[in-house]
Computed example of a mutant assay.
Amino acid sequence: MPEATLYPLENYTFGAKDAQPEEDPSVATRLKRLEHDFETQGMRRTVEAVLVVHQHNHPHVLMLQIANAFFKLPGHYLKPGQDEQDGLKEVLNHRIGSTDPNDNVAEQDWVIGECLSTWWRPNFESYMYPYVPAHITSPKEKKMLYFVHMPPNKVLSVPKNMKLLAVPLFELYDNSARYGAQLSAIAHLLSRYDFNYSN
């Protein structure tokens, strides 16, 4: 059983950075852009980070909340040909990395662990599946969720138009009605880890 050390939420400092508006004003616009990108670049690859801390010796996943309603993991799609782990580090620094130029460069580095799950978008629709449906020969998007090992402490800067929340696993478990299939599955994905709760 793989092990992972979790540190308390209180160990992390939360700052603010400029807002990062969504690229598309609606789901329909986003899917239209995906269709355009698919024609020019092929299948989109997206990476997202599962960042885990603890409160009262229970794992909590750090998630971004947009408009007090929509939850998502820190992540983004990759440039064509970009390495997945290097791309995820770049995305994390952009999304929630410290904005202080005096922070040590090493402080900005992230330890990317294993890929926890892969989700596939078979068509230009919002549905994604943890497998490629049998009749699909050309999926439109591949999304990979990576476990990212948090250091004992870190400065995290959150875009002003978002909140960074620590969501307990018991809240995610079997709660696809609120969090959707991908996020509610994280509790299952993390069950294979033996967590060490540090101070």
Score class of each variant (00 low, 15 high):
74 P>I: 00
154 K>L: 12
46 T>C: 04
98 S>P: 09
73 L>C: 03
167 V>E: 04
94 H>R: 14
84 E>F: 05
151 P>N: 02
144 M>W: 01
124 F>W: 10
26 S>L: 11
75 G>L: 06
31 L>S: 10
176 S>W: 06
170 F>G: 11
115 C>K: 13
13 T>Q: 15
89 K>N: 08
144 M>Q: 08
90 E>H: 05
186 I>W: 00
130 P>D: 11
116 L>R: 03
187 A>K: 01
57 N>S: 13
24 D>H: 14
91 V>W: 00
34 L>C: 04
1 M>A: 15
86 D>H: 13
51 L>I: 12
10 E>T: 15
4 A>L: 12
26 S>A: 11
73 L>F: 02
190 L>C: 05
124 F>L: 02
78 L>E: 01
199 N>F: 08
81 G>F: 02
28 A>E: 14
140 K>A: 04
164 L>F: 10
126 S>R: 09
82 Q>S: 06
135 H>L: 03
88 L>M: 05
146 Y>G: 03
6 L>F: 01
172 L>G: 00
94 H>F: 09
62 L>W: 01
64 L>F: 05
102 N>P: 00
91 V>R: 00
199 N>Y: 12
172 L>F: 01
43 M>F: 10
140 K>R: 14
106 A>M: 14
78 L>P: 00
153 N>W: 05
68 N>I: 04
170 F>D: 14
91 V>A: 03
122 P>T: 13
157 S>E: 13
11 N>G: 07
114 E>S: 08
146 Y>K: 04
82 Q>T: 07
66 I>T: 05
181 A>T: 11
83 D>I: 04
21 P>Q: 14
109 D>P: 04
182 Q>R: 05
109 D>A: 12
190 L>W: 12
120 W>D: 06
34 L>Q: 06
85 Q>S: 10
14 F>N: 07
